[in-house]
Simulated assay, not measured.
Amino acid sequence: MTAFGTLAVLYPKDAAFSAERALELVPDAATVVVDHGYDIYGPDLSAIDRARPTLEYDPRWSELTVRIGTRLPW
């Protein structure tokens, strides 16, 4: 639980945990899915806006850290 509500972080991003599927699995949460790819910031992230479920975007770990309110591994 964050100041913004429940945030689900799911791994790995595939058919079982696509960003769209995650909305169904965790209906009261904002959703971020960890992908298999890496860049200099760590594993790739995909997020989906519950208000616009067709819009998938790629936040950085630093943005996720701000939302959670604590440090993360990357």
Rank of each mutant, 00 (worst) to 15 (best):
R60G: 08
S18H: 08
A29H: 01
E56Y: 01
E24V: 10
Y57L: 01
V34L: 06
A47F: 04
D28E: 14
A22P: 08
A22M: 06
A51M: 12
D28R: 05
D44I: 11
L25Q: 10
D35C: 06
R52D: 14
I40Q: 14
D28H: 11
E24F: 02
A30D: 14
E20P: 00
A15M: 10
G37H: 14
V32Y: 01
L55Q: 09
Y38M: 14
L55Y: 07
Y57W: 11
D44W: 10
R60C: 08
T31K: 00
V26H: 00
L64P: 05
E63C: 02
D58I: 01
E63S: 12
E24G: 05
L45D: 08
A22Y: 00
P53C: 11
R50S: 06
R50A: 10
R21E: 15
E63Y: 05
R60V: 08
D28S: 12
V34Q: 05
L45H: 05
A30S: 14
D28K: 03
D35E: 11
Y41N: 14
V26W: 00
E24T: 07
D49N: 14
V32S: 02
L45E: 09
P53N: 09
A29M: 01
S18N: 12
P43T: 13
D49P: 00
A51C: 07
P27R: 03
G37N: 12
G42W: 09
I40A: 13
P43R: 15
P59D: 04
S18K: 15
R52T: 09
P59F: 06
Y38C: 10
Y38E: 13
R60T: 12
A22K: 06
P43I: 06
I40W: 13
P53A: 06
Y38A: 08
E24W: 01
G37Y: 08
P59V: 07
A30T: 07
G42A: 05
I48R: 09
T65C: 12
P59E: 07
D49F: 10
I48S: 07
P43A: 15
